[in-house]
Structure formats: structure tokens, C-alpha cells
Amino acid sequence: MHFSPVPLHIPDGFLSIMVSIICWVITIITLGIAISKTNKALGEKQVPLMGVMAAFIFAAQMINFPVAGGTSGHLLGGALAAIVLGPWAGMLVMTAVVAVQGLLFQDGGLLVMGANILNMGLVTAAIGYGLYRSAAGRSKVVKLSVAGVAAWLSVMAGALFTALQLWLSGTSQLGIVIPAMLGIHALIGLGEAFITVAALSFILQVRPDLLGEGSESAKGGRGWILAGGLIALAVVLISPLASGDPDGLERVAINMGFIDAGLDASYQVIPDYTLPFLGETALSTIVAGVIGIFVVGAVVVLIGRGMRAKA
């Protein structure tokens, strides 16, 4: 049985030491904040709750539904966890899920676990919760549609982060890995969005108290809207840029000293393509463009809503 429905679990060996360590540092700092926040904000009751919720996410990832041609839709769960448990608790829960998948099932490596937690647990929770939070106080339909967009974007953001880490490690070529990862996950994200929305609407129907005023879900600060919006913006800005002008980003990365693992001095520093790669074809530009437009539109609408809700 395969336990990772979403191909984001990076195994050991695919990320360079430097990228692995940087991801661990970001992850540890974020988790440190999450732990101190949950210790402060949550009661003693939350410990068994978070534990069982982690098992829930793990088990819910096994729920699938046939889409077409033998593929099936799955749940990653970062957005859902953050929406129902609050962002910090959601991050801790997703961290436990990713850790157990890596430790027990080798779904994702150990040295690169910092990156996997960052991509699948922290980024997804932040963007998922941030966007959902912007719909606070709105009607059920608005909330659910925003949650759907948030769930879709959370998968896209996870894919983008994964792609960037692979590229910075010299494992993949930027112009290919970004359109490829985002293209696949644009579809996978639909499954995520569908299941997240249906699950939330089920919960709203049966136990509205869990998502209503005073619940953990409603307690996250407004800063989350900003964080979620910023990550969404990053997806929006970096994806087309990376696909349209991979050389530009590559140059930046090399100047910053990232890409040296794969390129010894004897190699040319900037590879000049002798072949027309995906990164330069009309197809990839179109794909990136469509994604970009979709994302920009969603973000604009969401930010607008958030501001209106505030006013």
C-alpha cells in the first residue's frame, strides 16, 4: 500500500545539505512558535485532541475517490487540519503526520524531513488557514468556497516549495520542475479542494459549534490572512517568472551561493540550453499563465473580502 497520495514526500538524497539545513531551521523556528502558542492558548484537553486528529489526518489520507482514467482524488489535509484546529495546532498535527510517514513508512526522508514538514505541514496550514480566516463572518457558501480555493492553493504552494527546494539542490531543472510540479498538483489540488469542502460542510451541518464563534478555528489572529495572502502571492509571482525566465532565477540562486553542489568549477556556471525545454515552449507559458491568472484572481477576491469584512 502506498501511503503518500500526493507526490510531495521528498526522500533523502534529493536535497543538498544546505537546503536541508535551511528548511530544518525554518521548520524548527516555526514549530517553536507553534508549541509556545499552543501551550499558552490551548487547554490540557488539546493534547489528546491533537493526537487523535493526527491519526485522523493519517487515516483520512486513505480515503480516495475515483476521478477518471484510473487516477483518484486524495486528501493531504494541511488546510483542513488548520481550519478545524486552528493554525498552530494544525501545524503540530501535520508535523506529527509527516514525521510518522517518514519514520515509520519511509514516505519522505529523515534529513529532508524539515523540508517535508515545511512543504506539507507548515505552508499548507498557513495558506489554508489564512485564506479561510479572511472569510470569517461571511455566509456558509462564501466560507466553503474560500475553503476550497484555500485547499487548492495549499497543495499548489506545497508543490511550489518542493520544486524550489529540488532546484536549489541542483536535483531538477527550474524550467521543468516548476511547470511539471504545479501542473500535476493543479489536478491533485482539485481533489483536495473537493474533499476539504465536503468535509467542512458535513461538520458545519452536524457540529457547527466546532467551527463557530469561540472555537479554536475562529481564534487565529488577522495576521494569518496576511501570511496566507503572502504565500499565495509567492505562488502567483514565482511560478510564471520561473517558467518564463528560469535563467534569471537561476542566476540569483547562484549569486546567493545556493547552486554549487552540482556544478563543479569545470562545468559552465550557467548552462546554455542546446535543446528547447518545456520552460521555453508555448505550452508551459500557457499553463503557467492560466495558473497565474487563476491564482491572482482568487487572491484579489479574497483580499478584497477580507478588507470588506474588516470594515
Partner: peptide
């Protein structure tokens, strides 16, 4: 997808009550 989502919601509530 809605059926799958209902299952996830169902599972969530059972897990919540179990906790």
C-alpha cells in the same frame, strides 16, 4: 468527491468524540 468528503467529515467527528 462529496461522498468522500462526507466520509472524511464523519471520520473527523468520530475522532473528535473519541478524543
Amino acid at each position: 468527491a462529496k461522498i468522500a468528503g462526507n466520509m472524511a467529515g464523519q471520520l473527523f467527528l468520530r475522532s473528535y468524540e473519541r478524543s
